[in-house]
Nucleic acid binder design. Structure first.
Lengths: 144, 144
DNA sequence: CTCCTATTGCAATTCAATTTCAATAATAAT
DNA sequence: ATTATTATTGAAATTGAATTGCAATAGGAG
């Protein structure tokens, strides 16, 4: 908690855009609970809270929220994109169960070394990476 | 180079499905050239070769070609899925330039260690992983 | 308070992906 | 070979996530 609204507000102002209640509602909703989310989930939760926001506004704002570093694309599943909070959380990767959909996050410091070495070898300027490991979680692996 | 048609044929037969010229055309096209591809690209190339195959058939067959291990999902970009050949090629990861779209493949053995350790720590049975590093390639990083 | 224009909600649109359906053809059985 | 069964196909219709056009609204600078 804390800081995300301010970060977003100054990002918006710096770009010469306008802060609106709709934008604050979206940010507040994401940071109230949703480590991982998709647009429809966000929309339904906002509606349940009495918000009158439209899906179009959510779609329109997500690129801005990504650009300012509060969230990022996480993965594409069930025909649509899933996002995740990154502001206030360390960089992490995912273990995703392909049977029940469970997502476990993990942090690995060795990954940074690989990234650095690969970037050097290929003359790349790294901006981001994502490592997704898929398989069966402890519950599901016994059922396969 | 070879084997892919035979692998697919016996996969199809084992499932009690039917081998068709359309299926062989798709496999042949993928393995003629396309390390990375999307459905439309495949369709256009097949059409250029005189094939009468429909996009629906390509869409219908991709899950089967994935299931038998010839190709796999690579990444989602520009609103649609991109695939890559895996049969006959070692497992590899990607460096993707977010400016020009260039994709460089790399192999890293250290990654296997991370995978093993993370799986052990979280009691996961790993099926696959994908590491995508995004940033600017040698050409594009000087222009940013 | 006024003006300019970014933002919104709604509806229409786009387009990748899926599905329906009748015709066709691959395989097994005869 | 011939026939029967049913998986597969192409074409067209449909779905649904994501985008966009438009008129109304409202943020924020002056």
């Amino acid at each position: 908690m804390g800081g995300e609204i301010e970060v977003f507000r100054s990002f918006i102002s710096k770009k010469g855009l306008r802060n609106t209640p709709e934008r604050e509602e979206i940010i507040a909703e994401i940071f109230s609970d949703h480590n991982h989310f998709d647009v429809d989930e966000l929309y339904q939760c906002l509606k349940a809270r009495g918000s009158k926001i439209s899906k179009a506004s959510i779609y329109r704002n997500i690129p801005l929220i990504i650009e300012c570093g509060l969230i990022r694309d996480a993965w594409f599943e069930d025909r649509h994109m899933h996002y995740e909070r990154i502001y206030g959380r360390g960089h992490h990767c995912h273990l995703r169960c392909i049977r029940c959909g469970k997502v476990v996050e993990f942090v690995d410091n060795q990954l940074k070394d690989i990234e650095t070495r690969v970037a050097l070898e290929n003359d790349f300027h790294v901006i981001d990476h994502r490592l997704d490991i898929t398989g069966y979680c402890s519950k599901c692996k016994t059922m396969e």
